[in-house]
Design a protein around this nucleic acid. Structure first.
Length: 479
DNA sequence: TTTTGAGTTGTTCGA
DNA sequence: GTCGAACAACTCAAA
C-alpha cells in the first residue's frame, strides 16, 4: 500500500472539485493524488488569456488551491508546454497514471491527443473525460454527415437525444501525494494588474471560484430564471444568469446547470430559453472545432472583399465609451469597469462598430478578448461574426441596430445609461437616449454640455446606416 | 430526387 | 398611430 504510485490530475480550464470526472476517478483509484495546474503560454498553443481573464484566473486558482487544501491535497502549479510538464512531474514522483478533462480548442485537443498516445506508449495509464460541453463537437453531424451551420437544426438534434448525464459528486476527502514536488506560486505568475490597478470594479462585481459559481446559479434559479425570457433583454435589470465567466473557467459545468433545472422541474419558458443559450455556447464550440481559425478568418469567404474602414480615432472612441450614443457608451464602460457586458448591449455595440463605424469585426473581437472576464475562444469570435454578418446562421446584413430605438426599447427608464454614463444621469427618461435632440433648457438643467461634458455623436445614424448597406451591397452575389 | 418551409435577438417605409 | 412588406442567400430536414 505504501508503495502505491501516485496519480496526476490535470487542471486547465476546470477549476473546480464538483462534477470533475478526472478528479473523481483519481480519488476512486485509491492512489495518492497530485493536483497539477499547468499554465501553458506558448504562442502556438491555445489563445493566451487577456487581461481580464488573467485577473479572474488568479482569484480562481487561489480559491481552487484553498478547496483542495481543505480536502487534503495541495495544488501544484507549473508553467510550460503541458506535455513536457506532465512528463517532468511523472518522472519526479513516479506517477503511473494521468487523468484529465478534455479541452476543445482545436490546438489543445490535438496536443492532448498526442500526449495521451505518448504517455501510453511509455507505459503509463492516461485517460480523458468529458470536458466543458454537454456534447462532444466531433459527434454532431447533419443528415448528410457534415457539420451544422444553422443553430436550430443543431439544437433540435441535441435536444432530441438523451438528457445530459448527472453531475458527479464532489470528493469529500482527497488523499494527497506526500512527496516533494516543486510548485510555482501565484505571485510568480503576476496575473494581477499593477500599474495601473484597473481591477477595482471587477473585485466589486465578481466572486471567482467554484463557491461563487454555485451561489450565482442558486441566485439565478431563485430570482431570475422564471422571468428570464423577457427580462434577459433588459440591461438595467439583473435578468441574466451572469454565469458566463464561471463557465469559461470551468468553475461550474453545463451538466450541473442542466441538472439543477431538471431537479427543480423548471420547465417554463424561462428555463427553456436559458437552456437554449447554453445550446448557443455548444454551437459556438461546434463551429470552432470545425473552423479552427474562426477568430481570424471570415466564416463566409465573401467577406474577404468587405470594404472595412480603418479609423484609429473612431475605434478608440468606441473602446472608451465616447461615441455620443448613450446605450453604446454605457455598454463599453460597463465592459471596461466590470469586465462584463449585458448580452443585449453586446449586440448593440458590435453592430455599431461593424456597421455604423464599419470597422473590422476582428478589432472588436480582440478588444472583447482582452477586457471580458468571460472571454471565450468559441463564443467570442462566433458571435462577432454573427453580428457582422460573416458568420454561421448570421444576422441578415440589413439588420442595422438603431442605438436610439434599442435604448428606448430595452432601457426605457434609462437606468442602465444612468449607471454607467453618470454625466447624463440628470436628463429625463424621454430624452436620455438621444441627448442631441434635447432642448437647451433640458441640457443645461441636467448639467450637460454636448461636445464638452458628453460627446456629440461620432456618426449620424441615418447616413451611417446607408453607407453600411452600400458596403454590404458591394459584396453581394450576382443578380 | 426534388421541393418546400423555416430559420435568436430589426428597421424603415408607405399605405 | 398602426400594420404589413421588403430588405438576401443559404442550410437543413421533412414531405
Amino acid at each position: 500500500m505504501s508503495a502505491a504510485r501516485p496519480v496526476i490530475v490535470l487542471f486547465r480550464t476546470d477549476l473546480r472539485l464538483s462534477d470533475n470526472r478526472a478528479l473523481a476517478a483519481a480519488v476512486a483509484s485509491g492512489k495518492p493524488v497530485i493536483a497539477l495546474f499547468v499554465r501553458d503560454e506558448r504562442p502556438a498553443g491555445p489563445r493566451l488569456a487577456g487581461g481580464a481573464r488573467r485577473w479572474w484566473l488568479h482569484h480562481s486558482l487561489h480559491a481552487l488551491s484553498g478547496s483542495l487544501e481543505a480536502a487534503g491535497c495541495r495544488l501544484v502549479m507549473r508553467s510550460g508546454p503541458c506535455g513536457a510538464v506532465v512528463d517532468a512531474v511523472a518522472s519526479e514522483t513516479g506517477a503511473d497514471t494521468v487523468l484529465w478533462n478534455r479541452r476543445y480548442e482545436p490546438a489543445a485537443a490535438k496536443a492532448d491527443a498526442s500526449m495521451k498516445a505518448r504517455l501510453r506508449e511509455a507505459g503509463l495509464k492516461a485517460e480523458s473525460f468529458d470536458g466543458w460541453l454537454l456534447h462532444e463537437p466531433s459527434a454532431q453531424k447533419t443528415g448528410t454527415g457534415g457539420p451544422y451551420r444553422v443553430f436550430t437544426p443543431f439544437w433540435k438534434s441535441l435536444t432530441s437525444g438523451a438528457e445530459p448525464r448527472d453531475p458527479v459528486d464532489r470528493p469529500g476527502k482527497i488523499v494527497g501525494y506526500r512527496g516533494d514536488v516543486d510548485s510555482e506560486t501565484l505571485d510568480d505568475w503576476a496575473l494581477l494588474p499593477t500599474a495601473p490597478d484597473w481591477a477595482a470594479g471587477l473585485r466589486e462585481t465578481w466572486t471567482p471560484g467554484e463557491v461563487g459559481a454555485s451561489a450565482r446559479l442558486a441566485d439565478f434559479l431563485e430570482e431570475a430564471v422564471a422571468a428570464y425570457a423577457d427580462d434577459r433583454d433588459r440591461p438595467g435589470i439583473e435578468g441574466t444568469s451572469r454565469l458566463s465567466p464561471h463557465l469559461a473557467h470551468g468553475e461550474i459545468t453545463p451538466f450541473q446547470i442542466a441538472a439543477a433545472l431538471r431537479r427543480r422541474s423548471l420547465s417554463g419558458p424561462g428555463a427553456a430559453t436559458f437552456l437554449k443559450e447554453v445550446g448557443w455556447r455548444e454551437f459556438c464550440w461546434h463551429l470552432l472545432f470545425h473552423n479552427p481559425d474562426l477568430a481570424e478568418t471570415n466564416f463566409n469567404p465573401r467577406f474577404g472583399e468587405f470594404p472595412w474602414r480603418s479609423s484609429a480615432h473612431d475605434l478608440r472612441a468606441w473602446q472608451r465609451g465616447l461615441t455620443g450614443y448613450p446605450i453604446v457608451d454605457a455598454g463599453m464602460r460597463q465592459l471596461w469597469s466590470t469586465g462584463w457586458m449585458h448580452n443585449r448591449v453586446r449586440m448593440i455595440v458590435a453592430s455599431f462598430l461593424t456597421k455604423h463605424l464599419r470597422i473590422d469585426w476582428r478589432e472588436g473581437e480582440k478588444w472583447f478578448w482582452d477586457t471580458l472576464v468571460d472571454a471565450d475562444p468559441a463564443s467570442n469570435p462566433a458571435s462577432w461574426q454573427w453580428v457582422a454578418g460573416s458568420g454561421a446562421d448570421a444576422a441578415p446584413y440589413f439588420r442595422v441596430f438603431n442605438p436610439v430605438l434599442q435604448g428606448e426599447k430595452f432601457d426605457p427608464e434609462g437606468s442602465y445609461v444612468r449607471a454607467f454614463v453618470p454625466e447624463l444621469a440628470r436628463l429625463p427618461d424621454s430624452i436620455i437616449h438621444r441627448p442631441w435632440d434635447a432642448s437647451e433648457a433640458a441640457l443645461s438643467s441636467a448639467g450637460v454640455k454636448l461636445g464638452e461634458t458628453y460627446p456629440v455623436p461620432v456618426v449620424e445614424h441615418g447616413a451611417a446606416r446607408q453607407q453600411a448597406l452600400l458596403a454590404y451591397d458591394s459584396i453581394r452575389g450576382g443578380s
